[in-house]
Write a protein that binds this DNA or RNA. Structure first.
Lengths: 144, 144
DNA sequence: ATCATTGCAAACACTTTGCATACGC
DNA sequence: GCGTATGCAAAGTGTTTGCAATGAT
């Protein structure tokens, strides 16, 4: 795992303590956290931290290509540091999100389809995850 | 094109004038409108129409499997009456959304991957559309 | 008469903006 | 000291909720 400061600099991002901590949090929590989860995860370590800074930082990271912004439905904006091509699976019962590494014949970055240049792709599968599958009916459950 | 009342009834939806009009609007505007666009498109015909009813109706339609809810980023919830398996392409310059019919080897409804049961899938490609491609730099442009 | 749908107003959640303060080179 | 980052408070946006009025059978 590369040094955080160097990693930020290599993406043309001036390192600040907040930015370093957000990056560290994303690295330690690769489960596509929301902005709020990043905030909650850091507020104890940086008591003066503001949500504005989280949003600023995550948007800035996205702009610089460091994170990918995921829209997984229901105004659920999540941030993914993992830029490998992969697919997301979201459980409609518990809300858990899984990374799946499936080979896929969809057009890739740089391909042209119907005259459109593809620069990004996002695949979202939904269903019942292996954990919820085992359980009988009942209500939704909070994500772990 | 099937009769609207019958179509609603066949999906266990009691037809009301608002529901019929929303369905008609979706059929005449297959460009994945937002709730606001549906509202704007109907407010002249039904002056007493409320946004609440649009949201109620669209959510009800989604629940009954009549429309698919698309999350295309940036809190952009759109509604798609077209339930054929297809892929969406969104232009990052002008915001236009295109339907693409690509064959795709991704898991389908009913497949099981890593123990997860797939019930739905959504593929979003992003990039520069064929219209914007031709244009030189400059700013974004409103969707037609 | 009963039950479902509509629609207003208010509440809500999430995100962005304006601006003053603090920080780093 | 100057340019940038931070953080508070407020505004903005899109959506949902509570509830009274209306409509359908």
């Amino acid at each position: 795992m590369e040094n955080e400061k160097e990693f930020l600099r290599s993406h043309n991002i001036k390192p600040s303590i907040q930015r370093i901590m957000v990056l560290r949090f994303l690295r330690m929590n690769p489960l596509h956290p929301t902005a709020e989860e990043v905030y909650q995860g850091l507020i104890n370590e940086i008591p003066t931290l503001s949500r504005t800074t989280i949003y600023n930082t995550l948007n800035f990271f996205a702009e610089k290509g460091l994170v990918k912004v995921l829209n997984l439905g229901h105004n659920e904006t999540r941030y993914d540091l993992n830029t490998d091509e992969h697919v997301h699976f979201k459980c409609i019962k518990c809300g858990r999100i899984y990374d799946l590494y499936l080979s896929c014949n969809l057009p890739q970055k740089g391909d042209v389809v119907d005259g459109h240049i593809i620069t990004e792709r996002e695949v979202l599968l939904k269903g019942i995850c292996r954990i919820c599958k085992g359980k009988k009916g009942g209500d939704d459950e909070v994500q772990v």
